[in-house]
Design a protein around this nucleic acid. Sequence first.
DNA 1: GTTAGTGCAAACCTTTTGCAGCTCT
DNA 2: AGAGCTGCAAAAGGTTTGCACTAAC
Lengths: 168, 168
Amino acid sequence: MSQAETKDSLKSRGLRLTRQRKILLELIDGSGKHLDAEQLYQMAQKIDPKLNRVTVYRTLKMLKQGGLVDELDLMHQKGDQHFYETRLKGEHAHIICLRCGRVEEFFGDPLQKLRKQVEAHFGFEILITRTEIGGYCSHCQRLRSREFEDVRDSAERPRRKTAKEALD
Amino acid sequence: MSQAETKDSLKSRGLRLTRQRKILLELIDGSGKHLDAEQLYQMAQKIDPKLNRVTVYRTLKMLKQGGLVDELDLMHQKGDQHFYETRLKGEHAHIICLRCGRVEEFFGDPLQKLRKQVEAHFGFEILITRTEIGGYCSHCQRLRSREFEDVRDSAERPRRKTAKEALD
DNA sequence: GTTAGTGCAAACCTTTTGCAGCTCT
DNA sequence: AGAGCTGCAAAAGGTTTGCACTAAC
């Protein structure tokens, strides 16, 4: 969304385009990554050291409610925080590798079909959708099978992880 | 999943089927609802008053990692906690009404097609999927438009919500 | 008997709230 | 002028951790 459109969107709801909001909007629009509140806060502070973490949270909440950004969980692979992206690109799913953390985006007709079927089937008015898929990317599949072989071929007794270790 | 299958699944990983875990498994399997850790804790405590909240969290984490339950966010409509359901039913999406909180489940071929396309397109090995759709159910769409008319037709001046109120 | 699991208390991380003062329009 | 916004401090909500004791196998 252009700066001008965003400005209009805020104005029309009686909201103000403050110095802090300008900084945060540029960071979200410009980064092209999925940033969480803490990352945004760190980046914003380099521009305006007085900008408070609370302002970041309040701004994100406002942008989310205004439909200007989407909130992601990314399968909570890194923790329980939320990530944000603009609504510029069309609807897409997020594919998260549970080993290396890499995130891919998938645009494809199943997402549109799902949307249409849900609207038709339930008479539902859709405002937000979130599709997240967790597993192993092709690269990590190879690494995992090699790790597995290493354990079996190892000179050490191929001890299985204790249950406690497995939980960590 | 039957009690026996679950037992095997735990045993094969060197995990124990304790009194506390039996209670929690029955609650999750039996309820048919999407329960969060706190609800499970409250229910479990009625059966065993000494069962600790921490045990609930540890058990859920273990079941999730073992692929015995799925974790849901339900669009964080009620807060930032997680909800849980067994993996008995096939893959499905959750449709959450942002007004009344009602949750519907949608089973349909777009979900399978999405899965296949992602596997084919990225060579991805899928372990978990989560599709959540937020909006208004047909019932709440009607209520909302009525509420809106009420405001316009009201004898009071049709004041718009202040921005502060809108955020609450 | 050994190792996994539990309960308790305390810590942790992320996010929200109350309030006085500041700033955009 | 006046409503909206910010910063600060403090609290809240949900979840995890360290450790000594207990129970499953």
